[in-house]
Design a protein around this nucleic acid. Structure first.
Lengths: 184, 184
DNA sequence: GTAGCAACAGTCCACAGTGGACTGTCGCGG
DNA sequence: CCGCGACAGTCCACTGTGGACTGTTGCTAC
């Protein structure tokens, strides 16, 4: 009687995570474990899913008839296959406009509050992250060799543009912030 | 008796959100409402906090003695002030290395699954987001005028580098993806 | 062969984060 | 003085994250 509208009311009833699982299941039946690995491998650092989440969604979707549990294998392995209803739900999801990205960057939080933080903590944090990003860029550039799938390549390309931008940003930071007048 | 370790066991006991609130409270006592506004304004798109979260953290921190509730004002306005314990907790937090950023980008999810999605949905999504990012870049560049605080400027500069990178990435996408051979 | 370890597979829980509905209060323009 | 929009806070359901825990199985070293 109230206007409450939950995810279940949406035309397709899928959240992005559930949709991603159905997407992977288009290829072949997979277990939760496989799905986590696939997502990790393919969407890498720009779309994460966790074990807990995946198993939760799988059993929800099974109840909703979007996937079907197959024969249990060794080690309690539980393959799920997409159903016709699942394909429909996925198609509906794919027609909706994907939402905006969310970036949560603790280092920026720290910098924003920089006025109240000892200078050397800031410079340590900045240097640490600069190294991390340099490392990741190298990694991505390595992966860019022998990349055939254009869809996977698009994600990787995003990663490369992103990391380069972050590194350029580090280089642009004023000395005021990065290099405290630390003489001890 | 078990090895479980919750946030409360951490040396400072603060999550990033709580820490950000303490950070802002260094300036002056503020209400939850004010804090949401300040965070929104200063950390903009790279560190988000929600009303629910803020009020939750405030009452937790009040119970822990890190903040103190002041006199209630009009409209049930409830200002909180940081305590000495709060300053200590914040200082401890600031000594810890900030975690890595998380980027969640539904468009990349869609692209990754692109093989199973009608081409025109993909191109529509790409064009939509391209426009969004162009808009945001313009907005950021506008804000860059008259920016005095170097810490706020750092965040804004990140935003500009980021948006430029995203736009460059869009331009790099192969026609294969962005411009389906749609003839109907 | 078998002991043991690492990788596999899934469960469970607590906590963090998001979004929207809901309630109520004031300030001000008409 | 009425009503509307901004202010202020509450509550809830859901999504997302991380780690502890259980059990299994294949492989390697002895």
């Amino acid at each position: 009687m109230n206007g409450r509208r939950t995810a279940k009311d949406a035309p397709h009833g899928l959240n992005n995570t559930a949709a991603s699982l159905l997407g992977f299941l288009h290829e072949r039946p997979m277990t939760g474990w496989d799905l986590v690995a696939a997502a990790e491998q393919l969407m890498g650092d720009f779309w994460s899913i966790t074990r807990s989440q995946v198993y939760r969604e799988l059993s929800t979707m099974a109840r909703a008839g979007l996937v079907e549990e197959g024969e249990r294998g060794k080690r309690d392995r539980r393959p799920y296959a997409i159903t016709e209803a699942g394909r429909t739900a996925f198609a509906d999801w794919s027609a909706a406009m994907p939402g905006e990205e969310a970036v949560r960057f603790p280092l920026l939080l720290m910098l924003t509050l920089g006025r109240h933080i000892p200078r050397d903590h800031l410079t340590a944090a900045v240097e640490h992250h600069r190294a991390l990003h340099a490392e990741r860029l190298a990694e991505y550039e390595g992966q860019a060799e022998g990349m055939s799938d254009p869809y996977a390549a698009a994600t990787l390309s995003f990663g490369i543009h992103y990391e380069r931008a972050v590194l350029a940003w580090f280089d642009d930071l004023p000395e005021e912030i990065t290099r405290g007048a630390r003489k001890d």
